[in-house]
Structures are given as structure tokens and as C-alpha cells.
């Protein structure tokens, strides 16, 4: 169990809701949920959620910390905002789901090998290298995420698509060597590091 997770359990022993309100993006909205279920019925991937949003909200209030944070439900969010615009109480559900996923990952509780968690991490790291996403490397990292053998197989499976994209000039082999990027990448990286420090410090304020 990660140290951060241990510290958080100690701190919020009796109230997972307080923990979510303090540490999860837009978490202060959770108690506003009136359990109508419109979000769950509106989600395009609804049938794939072990616990749809409405249930997640109630589980938070019932203190089901492990069940919520280790769930792969939040990782099913496609960011379509259907739930957000339909919620009668205007909860920013998409952001709360993202926030719960981020928090679970930070505590080391996100399910291992959850494909969207892994892809999101690959995406973020790819972007942080040059300040812009390198689509070619993003695709390759995704193919090779499970090792070299699986990577070759996956690349071959997608070979035709890759060739078509290159022919349409919507993918460029040259992106492998350098490619697009921000000039002041040093500034971007320092800025993000600072933002992360500020946010981490804010989380500790509730000690």
C-alpha cells in the first residue's frame, strides 16, 4: 500500500466523503447528488460501468472507500458531457469522475493494467516531452505497451491503416525524429512542475 494512501486512510478514517470533498476535483459537489440516475442512463458506455456515476456518489457517501477507488468504473468515462448537461442539479459529473480516477491513481489504487489509465499516462508523458502530442509516437507507445512481441503484432495488424494515413498526409514518419514541439519547453515543464507542487501542498493542508 502506498504511503500517501496510508496517510489518507489515517486522516479521513471516518469520512470518505470529507476526503473526496477535500482532495478530489469538484468533490464538494458529491453530496448534491439526488440519486435520480439520469447520469447512469445517459452514459454512452453505461453498460460497462460496474458502478455507474449515481451509484459511485452513493458509495462515497456510504464510506465505501476501497470499492470506489479500486473500481475501474470511472475509467469508462469518455468525456462526452452527456451526464453534465442532463443532471438536474448540474453536478460536473465528468470532472468528478476524472478527479476520482486521478486520485485513485495517485494513491496507487487504480486497477492494474486498466487500459485507459495506461493510455492516459502514455498521452501525458508524450505531451510533456515537447509540449505537444506526437501522434506517431503516441500510437507506437500504445502498440508496444505490452512488450516488444505484442508491439510488433499490433503494429502489423494496423499496418494498412498506418500506410493509408501516411498517404493522406495525416501521419508523418519524420515525426519519429523530433517532430512538432513547443520552443519554450523548459518553461512549460517548470510551469507544470510548479503547478503540481502547489496542488500537492494544498492537499496536505488538510492534515
Amino acid at each position: 500500500m502506498s504511503e500517501t494512501n496510508k496517510a489518507m486512510i489515517e486522516q479521513y478514517r471516518n469520512s470518505f466523503l470529507s476526503e473526496v470533498e477535500a482532495n478530489v476535483e469538484e468533490g464538494e459537489w458529491v453530496k448534491m447528488c439526488m440519486q435520480c440516475g439520469v447520469c447512469s442512463g445517459s452514459c454512452p458506455l453505461g453498460k460497462h460501468w460496474a458502478h455507474p456515476p449515481q451509484e459511485i456518489f452513493m458509495m462515497i457517501r456510504a464510506g465505501k472507500r476501497d470499492e470506489v477507488l479500486t473500481s475501474d468504473s470511472m475509467w469508462m468515462c469518455t468525456s462526452c458531457y452527456n451526464c453534465v448537461v442532463r443532471c438536474p442539479r448540474q453536478l460536473p459529473i465528468t470532472h468528478i469522475m476524472h478527479g476520482l480516477a486521478t486520485y485513485a491513481k495517485k494513491l496507487g489504487l487504480a486497477p492494474k493494467n486498466q487500459p485507459t489509465a495506461r493510455f492516459a499516462e502514455i498521452f501525458w508523458n508524450n505531451m510533456m516531452k515537447k509540449g505537444r502530442v506526437n501522434e506517431l509516437k503516441l500510437g507506437l507507445s500504445l502498440y508496444f505497451k505490452d512488450g516488444f512481441g505484442a508491439g510488433i503484432k499490433e503494429s502489423l495488424r494496423n499496418k494498412d491503416l498506418g500506410m493509408k494515413m501516411m498517404k493522406a498526409k495525416r501521419m508523418a514518419a519524420s515525426e519519429f525524429f523530433g517532430g512538432h514541439g513547443v520552443k519554450d519547453i523548459g518553461g512549460v515543464q517548470k510551469m507544470i512542475q510548479k503547478a503540481q507542487e502547489i496542488e500537492d501542498a494544498r492537499m496536505k493542508k488538510f492534515d
Binding site: 478527479g99 480516477a101 486521478t102 485507459t116 492516459a120 499516462e121 509540449g131 502530442v133 503547478a195
Partner: peptide
């Protein structure tokens, strides 16, 4: 720079994303 789209969230939390 990149906005981190709607998928950067797993590694980039709230303030870093807003800052981008």
C-alpha cells in the same frame, strides 16, 4: 502548447491541466 485534451487527467491533475 497541448491542452492535454480529455485524457491527460490520469497523470495531469486539476491545476497542471488548467495551467496548460
Amino acid at each position: 502548447n497541448c491542452c492535454s485534451a480529455s485524457i491527460g487527467y490520469a497523470s495531469g491533475s486539476e491545476l497542471p491541466r488548467l495551467t496548460l
